[in-house]
């Protein structure tokens, strides 16, 4: 079974660049954009999956980090464009690596207090308190006028990466895809590491973990913060893809969508988020073109996944998971 999952995973990873390359050769740039979108949403979900899949922490507020990352990209680029310092004399920038770093740091800084408070709760209470924090940031973003409020913030052009023309779809896809691979690699290493084992133990038997002298709270907090950082990075990429960021990236629908991606693909599976994102985006795209009632059919598809594909798409393709 494990071998079959590996085959499925390899095929999944190859699928995106294959689509993007084919699109490049036949001159259908839009499909590169679609593949990029899948990769970014997958990265956001990989981030969430560290908390949700590995740690069993169902965060219903990860849109907060996704949106914050997006706003970092938007705000820094706007300040660079207007040649105004952001704060404390620091200039804005249109340099992607700097923006990524800033997004990761900011999301980590914000996730720390949110995690400190939220992780005192568990179960449904955790789901709802993370939602509460996300809603606070959402309403703040809607009513704060400096960066467009509900209208959002447009980037006049995509931010740059040294040596690449990111304005073209394919180079940008490559950038995003490499980051997705890095995210997947990190997830894989975490899962296999002692930290991953401790996180697993914190989920399944916190009392025993505590007896070994490791604090389940601290382990969960680290996982939550790490998870927020990766989702934040994906948010920055998403803003650059759309050249636009708005409070809807912070809304509870977005949080819900990220969770749906993971369950759709198969939770706690390494490639679950990628499979889920691919399926979701393709359904949205294909059904949306066919009928204005597409949300009805999307609902039916999701129901079918719950009932007939336990373990998500990966579970369906690769059989039962190796563990858990």
């Amino acid at each position: 079974m494990a071998a079959r999952e590996t085959t499925v995973n390899v095929l999944l990873v190859l699928l995106l660049p294959a689509v993007a390359l084919t699109a490049l050769f036949i001159g259908e740039a839009f499909y590169i954009t679609l593949a990029t979108r899948i990769a970014i949403l997958a990265l956001a979900a990989v981030g969430l999956n560290i908390a949700l899949g590995l740690g069993g922490l169902v965060s219903f507020g990860h849109a907060a980090f996704f949106g914050l990352g997006g706003y970092v990209a938007g705000v820094l680029a706007t300040h660079a464009f207007n040649m105004e310092p952001v704060a404390l004399g620091l200039p804005g920038t249109t340099d992607m690596p700097v923006i990524w770093l800033a997004a990761i740091l900011l999301c980590g800084l914000v996730a720390l207090p949110i995690g400190l408070v939220s992780l005192r709760t568990s179960g449904v209470y955790f789901i709802m308190i993370t939602l509460a924090f996300a809603q606070m940031i959402y309403y703040f973003a809607i009513s704060w006028p400096a960066y467009g409020g509900e209208d959002g913030l447009s980037l006049s052009m995509r931010n740059g990466f040294p040596g690449l023309n990111t304005a073209r779809p394919f180079p940008y896809f490559i950038v995003v895809f490499v980051l997705l691979l890095a995210g997947l690699f990190l997830f894989h290493r975490l899962q296999a590491s002692r930290f991953g084992a401790a996180l697993e133990a914190a989920r399944q038997n916190p009392a025993r973990l505590a007896a070994t002298g490791i604090s389940p709270f601290a382990i969960r907090l680290v996982a939550f913060v790490l998870s927020a950082m990766i989702t934040g990075l994906a948010g920055a990429l998403f803003a650059d893809l759309n050249r636009f960021v708005s409070p809807s990236m912070l809304s509870w629908h977005m949080s819900g969508e990220l969770i749906v991606l993971i369950i759709l693909g198969g939770k706690s599976r390494l490639f679950g988020p990628l499979a889920g994102a691919a399926l979701y985006v393709l359904f949205e795209y294909a059904l949306g073109g066919l009928t204005e009632r597409w949300q009805l059919f999307l609902g039916l598809v999701l129901l079918a996944v719950v009932f007939f594909a336990r373990g998500g798409l990966i579970g369906l393709l690769a059989g039962r998971p190796r563990h858990g």
Binding site: L296, L302, V306
Partner: peptide, 15 residues
């Protein structure tokens, strides 16, 4: 588990 419930009832909202 709660996650499956969330997904299924989210699907019901759409429907």
């Amino acid at each position: 588990d709660h996650l499956d419930q969330v997904l299924a009832t989210f699907a019901l909202i759409l429907i």
